[in-house]
Design a protein around this nucleic acid. Structure first.
Lengths: 257, 257
DNA sequence: CAGTGGTCTAGACCACGTG
DNA sequence: ACGTGGTCTAGACCACTGC
């Protein structure tokens, strides 16, 4: 339980790591214990985790140390603290998470609910590039999705999505058609895979014929291309996505801090 | 100094804010005092601020309270803590800040230093749209810049930049030509304006003739358009920027967390 | 060795939500 | 009234930097 080179959970008088060893403070060790509990599903998305005092007791550290561990998990959006109520496992089902991974929004109108239409859902062999990004072997099975996101009746985003076949064996076109809500919500509830981070590369490209048709623009029109790799616990890549967007009345929003 | 409705800096026995009043914890009050010192330039970018103990003494609170205030300013990238050395005012001159506001990078090669060439630097009246974004009157003077960013010899980003004329009176083409470094570094050192946050809207557009010529692409080629509004202390907008990028071998990088 | 930020503890009290 | 997270304090000790 206690990693070598780290100070133990035996209280303030326990021996500390030597200078030469890899030093990690106690609260980080508590943090990884909490992380493990999240990863193995001891606490499910939306559920309340034990109180700080309870955890402090379990790990035999002070409340302040647990607190600091939870603080970090909270700023990483893995846990959500609610004063007076408790600390909860973050979920993609709550409205506040909605626009964390959906960055294409209307220009100067209020955000509007997106409607998904799934065009395809099939099993494929990993294309070379996608296989690399997901750290899979070329022969590994993948699930491939194609969907059209519609805002206020007009098509705005055309997504292609690749998922590891292993994890998403049971994903079907039927399930997608009847599901209404964020895709990552479905993934976390029914496939036990929670997306916690994503890297994106954004470009401008000319619309190919098929994309142009689906997005109702002229072939060759400029489209925004967003290439995304999403990660779950432990920096494990579990989704590759290529989204094409019409950015006439919509844009990709970002904040630099 | 002490805002009404907040608890004072008179120590733990001072009366606290009533339930009905707007409640703000002590460390937030300390935070705004620190913020004020930053804003008025009591501590300049790159300089060390007083130690936590010293500040605790100045404000008559515990070190832990000062610490929490500094923690927040540190996560907001306004201060930088360096263990064993002190806490420093963040600056756009350090390498670590370089890629915080420059998000266009080479595809799969190592990041490369960008070279700026300034094409224009003149005084203009505020265009309606820009004036609104900067919260200026239509007649207010602006400084208008145009520059070409080059990576490894090829033109990649064409920026148009509008700045309040009041603040940037002394900005000249000569100064820009001889300056070598991040623009925000120049702004903070010589114009007392430090950019701390920016909102961006990203789109795909077709290259107009002049942009196409400067970026050495065919007219009508898809280009990435990044519209930015930058803010200094107190959420005050002080820059509007429109950047056009060629995204053949470069992309706009983003991380969703 | 002195000074800085970083960790950890223990205990008191506050604000918030729910009975 | 109770339990939750949130604030604040005081003090001890650790890790890092530079003289």
């Amino acid at each position: 339980m206690v990693k070598s080179g780290m100070s133990g959970v035996d209280g303030p008088d326990a021996p500390r790591a030597s200078k030469a060893a890899v030093y990690a403070p106690l609260y980080r060790q508590i943090k990884s214990l909490l992380l493990r509990s999240l990863q193995v599903g001891e606490w499910k998305p939306g559920q309340m985790i034990p109180s700080e005092l309870e955890l402090a007791n379990r790990f035999q550290v002070s409340q302040g140390t647990v607190r600091k561990a939870i603080d970090e998990l909270s700023t990483e959006n893995l846990l959500i603290r609610k004063q007076g109520k408790g600390t909860f496992v973050a979920t993609h089902h709550e409205p506040r998470a909605r626009f964390r991974f959906l960055r294409v929004v209307p220009d100067d109108r209020a955000p509007v609910p997106a409607v998904s239409r799934y065009l395809e859902c099939k099993r494929v062999r990993a294309p070379r590039e996608v296989g690399m990004q997901l750290a899979l072997k070329p022969s590994d099975p993948l699930v491939y999705l194609r969907r059209l996101l519609t805002f206020e009746g007009s098509p705005v985003v055309l997504d292609e999505i690749w998922l590891p076949g292993q994890l998403f064996k049971k994903l079907t076109a039927e399930r997608l058609a009847e599901y209404n809500g964020p895709l990552y919500g479905l993934f976390e509830s029914e496939f036990g895979t929670r997306m916690i981070r994503a890297d994106e590369r954004i470009r401008a490209v000319a619309a190919a014929a098929d994309a142009a048709r689906l997005l109702k623009v002229a072939a060759g029109s400029p489209l925004l291309l967003v290439e995304r790799v999403s990660y779950t616990y432990g920096e494990r890549p579990v989704e590759v996505r290529r989204g094409l967007s019409v950015t006439e009345e919509y844009h990709y929003r970002n904040t630099l801090t």
